[in-house]
Amino acid sequence: MTDLLTQLMTERDWLMADGATGTTLFNMGLTSGDAPELWNVDKPDNIRALYKGAVDAGSDIFLTNSFGGNASRLKLHDAQSRVRELNRAAAELGREVADASGRKVVVAGSVGPTGDIMEPMGSLTFDSAVEMFHEQAEGLKEGGADVLWVETISAPEEYKAAARAAELADMPWCGTMSFDTAGRTMMGITSADLAKMVETLGKPPLAFGANCGVGAADLLRTVLGFAAQGSERPIIAKGNAGIPKYVDGHIHYDGTPELMADYAVLARDCGATIIGGCCGTTPDHLRAMRDALETRPRSDSRPTLEQIAAALGGFSSASDGTGDDAGPKRDRRSRRRRS
Score class of each variant (00 low, 15 high):
T6M: 04
M9W: 05
M9C: 05
R12D: 10
D13F: 08
W14A: 02
A17P: 03
D18W: 06
T21V: 14
T24V: 08
L25Q: 07
N27S: 14
T31M: 11
S32P: 04
G33L: 07
K43V: 05
K43Q: 15
D45Y: 06
N46M: 12
R48C: 09
R48D: 06
L50N: 10
Y51N: 14
V55W: 01
V55D: 00
D56H: 02
A57P: 10
G58H: 13
G58V: 06
D60L: 09
D60V: 07
F62V: 02
L63Q: 14
L63P: 04
F67D: 00
G69L: 06
A71D: 14
S72P: 02
S72Y: 14
R73Y: 13
D78P: 02
A79V: 03
S81N: 15
V83D: 09
A89G: 04
A90Q: 03
E92M: 11
E92D: 12
L93F: 12
G94M: 14
R95Q: 11
R95W: 07
E96R: 06
E96T: 04
V97D: 08
A98P: 05
D99T: 14
A100I: 12
G102E: 09
R103P: 00
K104Y: 00
V105I: 14
V107C: 07
A108W: 02
A108M: 02
V111E: 00
G112W: 01
P113W: 02
G115R: 04
I117Q: 01
I117W: 02
I117V: 14
I117G: 00
P120C: 03
P120V: 03
M121C: 02
M121I: 13
S123V: 07
